[in-house]
Design a protein around this nucleic acid. Sequence first.
DNA 1: GCATGCAAAATTGCATACAAGATAGCCAGA
DNA 2: TCTGGCTATCTTGTATGCAATTTTGCATGC
Lengths: 232, 232
Amino acid sequence: MDAAPRKIALPGPPRTRADRLREDLAEEILSGRIGPGVRLDEQGLADRFGVSRTPVREALRQLAATGLVEARPHKGVVVTTPSPVALAESFEVMAELEAACAALAARRMPAGLRRTLARVHGRLRTLADAGDPEDYAALNLEFHDTIWQGSGNATLAAMTADVRRRVGPFRRLQFRLSGRLQKSWEEHDAVVRAILAGDPETARAAMRGHVGLVGDASADLVRPGAFLAAAK
Amino acid sequence: MDAAPRKIALPGPPRTRADRLREDLAEEILSGRIGPGVRLDEQGLADRFGVSRTPVREALRQLAATGLVEARPHKGVVVTTPSPVALAESFEVMAELEAACAALAARRMPAGLRRTLARVHGRLRTLADAGDPEDYAALNLEFHDTIWQGSGNATLAAMTADVRRRVGPFRRLQFRLSGRLQKSWEEHDAVVRAILAGDPETARAAMRGHVGLVGDASADLVRPGAFLAAAK
DNA sequence: GCATGCAAAATTGCATACAAGATAGCCAGA
DNA sequence: TCTGGCTATCTTGTATGCAATTTTGCATGC
């Protein structure tokens, strides 16, 4: 006999409909498929996902608690439209958090992660030379993730990753701009040197400058159209 | 005619049962009245608050999204019991956030807030001399809040206040310890001097040291009994 | 005495029904 | 024609009932 289970038993706990809905909606929002200001109709979502309103409401409430959507009593929920000021503040927070990660990493990043960091940094150099914005952006995330891990503070790492995810739809990735890849790599290089040298404050300053530049804390980095799309 | 409304019209929007439940439960958890590890029974809460399970569930889902409670499918909701490691990490995050606030405040705190800061600082001096831990703790919060506002970054200020609130139940306030008030005030003094002098990095370092000491990032600052109470 | 398996109870997840508040459209009057 | 208010409709908030899963208790066998 075999009777191999038709459904592959995933390791995770049995997931509920509301959980899946929450993740699906979050993904659609963060990917930009559902833009800021769009109203999320409960019955509409229920129909679309083939469930009742109850799990939809629970998913929306969780998203509201994380700030991804805004819900006002009896007035429905809409995808959050951050003000330019709020966006600039988020970028500044991100810069400070990333900088803190770098500083802590400089103090206590384990040898294994240091080697990983150096390796990723080296591969980024190749991609920068090749001028490949797509792959550079992907590996760039891994670069930062390595430093988050290197902070030795999972809570801080999670917060940093979360803020970065949230501002993601509003960043304009400038990697396509001529020379931006090279400049980014040089900024990375300063961060890597400081971390490997065990110099926290230099690492912090270098990282803050790097992130602050990539997502400069000014209104003009808002992705054009994001707010227009939000306007009803 | 008068017909004065019997219910005072509060400025806020019409609140829903789930909202009130969420706030009430959050308050009970953060105040320590509902300790870590305590199971939150849906029907029990519904009976206690005189509502049905539906708003209770929505409140619990929101609390779960913020990390105050943990919900596993079909297994109920329990008040989050942070591990000693997670707690230490949170304290470290708090120190970094407070330090970032101080650094930004040193750069751009408006004159009005600077005067407020100086005034609060002066009153704290009086309370420290008088050796009044209660009032000192209260005004100490105002001291920090002034700096949060002074950062000019409402997002950062909110994050910092939130982290502080969450670790609140696990801090052991050492203001009662002899000499602690004086030492705290001296640390404050270094922060205030750096902010008023417009020296961001000195302010950052001073604040990090201050917060790091008040809630020292080591396991022994966990309030004794918090985990014992959690043990079922 | 202890482990194992089954059944019943309890609890959570979801769907449906109803209530309350908000929005929109219409009609009356100026 | 425009304005004000009223009603109809729609959406959300809450309650209730049922389904699904977990847990508990007991009986049975070793």
